[in-house]
Design a protein around this nucleic acid. Structure first.
Lengths: 152, 152
DNA sequence: ACAAGACGTCAAGCGCCTTGACCATTCGAG
DNA sequence: CTCGAATGGTCAAGGCGCTTGACGTCTTGT
């Protein structure tokens, strides 16, 4: 362990978790999801009526790139498109059972991680860490919501 | 603020910091550094005798990609190459004064951030956070050093 | 009613990365 | 010492994910 700078530690911590998550997903048959997909899943799971344009905006990419990503997820069986109930130009992106199963697996893995960490540093300290991170993020972002998307 | 899941918070926190850092760098005349460069700087600043192949290995890319990155940094004036003292095949990558200045600016910005956070949640809690992150990273990585490189 | 705007698509191109082949130099087993 | 294997670096071709630009379809606001 070198660099005790907190920003570096944040990056390493996230990296180490997600490496583990993707390794576990691969074992469970979700070996066709790339890291970029995760950010789409995260958005789709909390926005049931999302369109490709909205997803692109959230991810910080063009609508064309978003459509391409959705095409890929659809081909892999994680999402499907249904006609928008009122807007005939648009199509709503819906997670399939397989999509939901993958998300559930990630949530479970994150929970396992938190439990493990609770044993390591104590539940109180873990909750303190969560609380502090929220405080720092809110401060840095000026209260604006922070989009969960690739950084670099 | 949605998702109180710790992994998501780690990603958001890092994102919010680095957005700020890059915005500040741009103001200070370092407007030509891309996020990917930062990981190279981080390695070069701690490995004074680094070669392109070593850098590529650290970043997890091919040597060709690493050479291309170094070419770019050299063209921008952040690094220069000098003949390797003993190996005539190899060239050592050295940071220029401009390279060091950029790194120093980032270090200063990180220190400012830590000071600001110390005021927000208290120095003790901040040190606890640092300590806990180290603990968690060491646990997840099995003690292996974690390369600081892009995650996705 | 109609112009302006928004969703999605098609097409072309670019940036960063990869694979594959190669040369020059160094290493190491015999 | 020698010579084959391994290593640092380069050249070339191609892929993948993204961008820009233009367009058709549908919706919205005046």
């Amino acid at each position: 362990m070198a660099a005790p700078e907190i920003p570096a530690l944040l990056a390493m911590a996230f990296r180490v978790i997600m490496d583990h998550v993707h390794a576990s997903l691969a074992v469970d048959g979700f070996d066709d999801v790339r890291p970029a997909h995760g950010f789409a899943f995260q958005y789709l799971s909390t926005h049931s009526q999302a369109t490709a344009v909205e997803l692109g905006h959230h991810l910080g990419v063009t609508k064309q790139a978003a459509v391409q990503l959705v095409d890929e997820l659809q081909h892999l069986g994680y999402v499907q498109r249904v006609p928008h109930p009122v807007d005939r130009r648009s199509r709503v992106i819906m997670l399939t059972p397989r999509g939901w199963a993958c998300i559930q697996r990630v949530v479970n893995l994150w929970q396992d991680t938190e439990i493990r960490w609770g044993e390591l540093i104590g539940r109180e300290r873990l909750n303190g860490l969560r609380q502090d991170l929220v405080t720092l993020i809110v401060d840095c972002s000026g209260g604006q919501p922070v989009a969960l998307r690739p950084v670099w």
